[in-house]
């Protein structure tokens, strides 16, 4: 299998740039909520109770899982209005690993605030991650984006779309990355990336709000077909703003 989380990033970017309010920026708080709270968040996101809409019991093809955004592990999920998407289960599992690893390593296992960005937002197979540039044209729902238990719809009015913001940056390692924050050149990025991931895979980047650590899974040069790759932490910097 190819190590990608394209469908995951598609869902996150829909939630970040396209869904009609509340739209979810990129600053989140991991609050170490108890199981009951996380369960409630999964339910309000439309991914629970089980079987959810992505289950074979609901006639969805085998091997899929319900991905919600914002994550059930962050406080921002309490405001409701999360989006969900049926994604390949292996992608959802990889995302969970990345998030869990980040909470343990960069947050030290303690509640923390972080910022999510999207690496290589124009990469093949990913939708909506460049939508901040032209949301009216690019935020076209594909039928798999749900808000709660109903298909999500394109934001209907210009005023709402005008509130979408985002910036595209080039890093010193040559990765394009988008954030909704205006970052200075030289901002240090700590990326968690999959060794041997393809250059065109979408990336997930997380940035500690307090100390400008970043966290992502990202690209590498060769070998498409990698099972269960190890992850490595790589330092990078914002080189310049593209858009």
């Amino acid at each position: 299998m190819t190590w990608t989380i394209k469908e995951i990033c598609t869902n996150m970017c829909w939630g970040a740039y396209c869904t009609k309010g509340p739209r979810f920026g990129v600053t989140f708080n991991w609050d170490k909520a108890d199981k009951t709270t996380k369960r409630r968040r999964r339910r309000s996101a439309g991914c629970a109770p089980n079987p959810n809409r992505c289950s074979t019991k609901k006639n969805y093809p085998k091997g899929h899982s319900c991905d919600e955004y914002p994550f059930a592990s962050v406080k921002e999920a309490d405001q409701g209005g999360q989006v969900n998407r049926c994604v390949p289960a292996d992608q959802n599992s990889r995302q969970g690993n990345l998030i869990g690893k980040y909470y343990q390593s960069s947050c030290g296992g303690n509640p923390c605030q972080f910022i999510v960005g999207f690496g290589n937002p124009n990469s093949a197979g990913v939708k909506y991650c460049s939508a901040f540039q032209d949301p009216k044209t690019m935020c076209v729902p594909d039928g798999n984006e749900f808000k709660g238990n109903n298909p999500d719809v394109q934001p209907p009015n210009k005023r709402d779309l005008d509130q979408v913001r985002g910036y595209l940056y080039m890093t010193e390692r040559g990765t394009e990355v988008s954030f909704d924050h205006d970052l200075e050149p030289g901002t240090i990025i700590h990326s968690v990336r999959a060794i041997n991931e393809t250059l065109f895979d979408e990336t997930l980047k997380l940035k500690r709000r307090d100390d400008y650590d970043y966290y992502d899974d990202s690209d590498n040069d060769d070998e498409d077909d990698v099972d269960d790759p190890n992850l490595e932490v790589v330092e990078d910097k914002i080189a310049y703003k593209i858009v």
Binding site: K35, K38, R39, R41, R42, C47, A48, N50, P51, N52, C54, S55, T56, K57, K62, G63, S65, C66, F71, A72, S73, A89, N92, S93, R94, Q95, G96, N97, I99, G100, K101, Y103
Partner: peptide
């Protein structure tokens, strides 16, 4: 797959039933 599954369950990124599905 089992360690990854436990992490995903712990942070509620995926549900038990989703693993039972496969």
């Amino acid at each position: 797959d089992v360690a990854s599954a436990m992490v995903n369950l712990e942070i509620a990124n995926m549900d038990w039933e989703e693993f039972k599905d496969s």
